[in-house]
Write a protein that binds this DNA or RNA. Sequence first.
DNA 1: AGTTCAGACTTGTTATGACATGTATCCTCA
DNA 2: TGAGGATACATGTCATAACAAGTCTGAACT
Lengths: 255, 255
Amino acid sequence: MTCILSGMEMPLHERIAADLRRRIASGELAVGDPVPSESQLGAQWNASRAPVRQALTSLRAEGMIGGGRGKPAVVRRHTLSQPFETFLSFSSWAAGLGHVPGQRTLEIARRPADADIADALQLDEGTPVVQLLRQRLIDGRPTMLERTTFVEPVGRLLFDFDCDSGSLYAYLGEQGVDMTVARHQIDAVAADAQDSELLEVALGAPLLRERRCASGMDGRPVEYSDDRYRPDMVSFSIENSQQAHPALLRDWRAS
Amino acid sequence: MTCILSGMEMPLHERIAADLRRRIASGELAVGDPVPSESQLGAQWNASRAPVRQALTSLRAEGMIGGGRGKPAVVRRHTLSQPFETFLSFSSWAAGLGHVPGQRTLEIARRPADADIADALQLDEGTPVVQLLRQRLIDGRPTMLERTTFVEPVGRLLFDFDCDSGSLYAYLGEQGVDMTVARHQIDAVAADAQDSELLEVALGAPLLRERRCASGMDGRPVEYSDDRYRPDMVSFSIENSQQAHPALLRDWRAS
DNA sequence: AGTTCAGACTTGTTATGACATGTATCCTCA
DNA sequence: TGAGGATACATGTCATAACAAGTCTGAACT
């Protein structure tokens, strides 16, 4: 049982990175400000250069800081950007940024799949599925609304689990649920009545939507989710190069 | 003035990484084969673990090898030549899908950079830049609005180019402009007056926004762009797995 | 005043050594 | 024969130390 809380057992370099992310995101270190030098950070944390450099390398890869040989690091961005690698776990993502994740499970229900869900999960319409409605918070502020649907054999496990206590995906992993592949589709939608209320935005306000379908190694879908983020709090980011692999493509959808 | 030529004095960790890439690409190390362990590589190169690990970290970030704590590294991919232009070039993307791309360049101007642009391009505020406003169409229908800013040395080339005649990025490439790395940030915004008019959507309608900053190999930003898509026509998608590096894919969904 | 240059400071690279932690294998014991 | 545990091995993390190389500042010089 790994308590997600505040990762007390995180490696030193991750703690340093998380602290810097928090200080940058909170505005304590504003854009353009110089980041403490490696030696200063080493002194503050009573650490050698190795973990300090590992933390800075991490922030640099995320584009939060700049700098280079001879050039002290400076803050470049303070926006929370979500690396695609950490898409599955909202909690650990927020914790890694030095923020306090929260969640309120508003509904858990077993009901027959409607046409859209059935299509996404490759089931017949009417097959029972388990649906979850969760409000996700960062530092107590509503940030994301998650409408997740599990196939029944997996969803049944959730009735024995306190969804607000820890990482749901860690729990499912322990139970032997295999979710090795995920497909994400990202677009924008206007907030409907429920979005508006639970995310505390105006009706019709633009929301960033991620629709996700996770499958096991055998390719059988396990989970489908419609997540809606407040765009003023979360954005997605991708970095690609001719060297490294991630390539960004656009999806065209005929109306 | 540092001559770029052939870096004979590459650091050790880069030489190790380059050698491993070559051995993997050439097939000497096939997909699934185990990569030499850190200690073996250290012995081969007569090096300590530091540069060896730095090289392996590099390859891992590129998705070429896998492995983890206790798990020896294995070769995952041997190709790393993903067409980088596909995400830059709207035209070739649409054409590849069998649709007719179109574009109307509405404005090209040289003006001083404002604060946001200056920050993104790492310039001082007020430095002259070249801005482009382009409406992109698919099958004659407005699909995307592109507000691109180039640093002046690159942007000046555009005044000698008919932006509606061919691929802008192909032209810049011929002119020796280096754009090997790009960072994308994706979120949602409400359509402002200009968006509304040019994309033919209601004022305040949700739009999918991609902000892009492209840099050369040296990390110096070359281009910044704010692209706004009609979410009913375009979305982004990504596929990732725990095993492989996240691979971004494109979805076609016929109506 | 403008230029040049020495020196302080910063980050990049590498070596060496140690311990922690996860994985896989093989051997023993029931 | 199957389950369990001891063990070798791999990688992850971190400390200490030294030198290389780029940047910046300020002082001396033209």
